[in-house]
């Protein structure tokens, strides 16, 4: 069977460049700026090992004498200069932010992908089969929605931490965090996909697919799924901003990324200890990075929601 969705690369690029969505993107300053900031932050996180002046987690490169160097001033003992200063252990704040953002983004993106896959699968099943499948899945969603998702994530983190043997807890913390945030976030996806699936199910093309004997599984994945994806994209973008903030919150509270693998939230937690003694930069720069990241992704999601909403056109 030939695959109709596969078009040659140049044509596809042309189609993207000519699309309404790209036009809306090109002409919206908010979208352009937030996309630029997001891309810049993501790229600097991905290429952190190339950009960072030191590897902050390599004990050999650390010099305790460099501790508490203010930004842009030479250290009193070693005379070394650091762009954004150093923390108590002499780690370069600029480098820790780059590596921290890596972990924040990794946790955020993986958690959202996990939530998305889970939500899409459950939403498709509920919407397509209806009946008992639908009742059970959607009741579970209702129960979970009774609670704010950050509370659900905290609870899942606590339970998962309890199940992990003590000696693996620090290594597993990142994965436990992804599991907690992902599981706390699937309901949004499931609800939207279920609603859209119920609409699509009644259309002629699904009946036609039935008629030529396509199995239910293939109809769901190959035929219905592509038609319900655009709201999923919007939710995914907004969820990413929320997941990054949720990760930072959990890590800040001390129930997330461990100090050995600090995310932006962990860095803020560490920085808070030195706020009272006047070393403001240890907290200030990670906090600004977190804000820039969350805000730009959020604005991008808001713009995408408006751009894809047919009622606003």
């Amino acid at each position: 069977m030939t695959d109709v969705t596969e078009t040659p690369a140049p044509t596809r690029l042309r189609r993207i460049l000519d699309s309404d969505l790209f036009y809306a993107f090109r002409t919206s300053p908010v979208a352009l700026i937030s996309a630029l900031v997001t891309m810049f932050l993501i790229l600097s996180a991905v290429f952190a090992p190339l950009i960072a002046t030191t590897n902050p987690f390599d004990p050999a490169s650390l010099n305790l004498m460099n501790g508490f160097t203010p930004p842009m001033e030479p250290n009193a003992f070693t005379g070394e200069n650091f762009l954004l200063g150093t923390d108590d252990q002499g780690r370069d704040v600029f480098s820790t932010i780059l590596y921290g953002m890596r972990i924040s983004l990794f946790v955020g993106v993986t958690a959202v992908v996990f939530a998305m896959v889970l939500g899409i699968v459950l939403g498709l099943l509920a919407g397509y089969f209806g009946g008992w499948t639908d009742t059970i899945i959607m009741r579970a969603a209702d129960v979970q929605l009774t609670f704010p998702s950050i509370l659900v994530a905290m609870l899942i983190f606590g339970i998962a931490k309890g199940i992990t043997p003590i000696e693996y807890r620090d290594q597993m913390a990142i994965w436990v965090l992804i599991l907690a945030i992902g599981l706390s976030d699937w309901v949004q996806f499931a609800r939207v996909v279920r609603g859209a699936t119920m609409v699509e199910k009644g259309k002629d093309y699904v009946a036609a697919a039935h008629l030529i004997g396509r199995p239910s599984f293939a109809i769901m994945i190959r035929h219905i799924l592509p038609n319900v994806l655009s709201p999923v994209l919007v939710i995914a973008t907004i969820s990413l901003a929320l997941a990054i903030i949720a990760e930072a919150t959990l890590s800040f509270l001390g129930i997330g990324a461990p100090p050995t693998q600090p995310s932006l939230g962990t860095l803020i937690r560490i920085g808070q200890q030195f706020l009272f003694s006047g070393e403001w930069w240890i907290l200030f720069f990670p906090a600004c990075t977190l804000l820039a990241l969350a805000l730009s992704v959020n604005l991008l999601g808001d713009w995408l929601r408006d751009a894809l909403n047919p009622r606003l056109k």
């Binding site: 919150t249 803020i268 808070q272 706020l275 906090a287 977190l290 969350a294 805000l295």
Partner: peptide, 18 residues
């Protein structure tokens, strides 16, 4: 709306306590 709760708290502490 976009500031995470814990950052608001830290900001207030820095301003009014420190």
């Amino acid at each position: 709306v976009s500031l995470p709760t814990f950052l608001i708290g830290i900001l207030l502490i820095y301003l009014f306590s420190v």
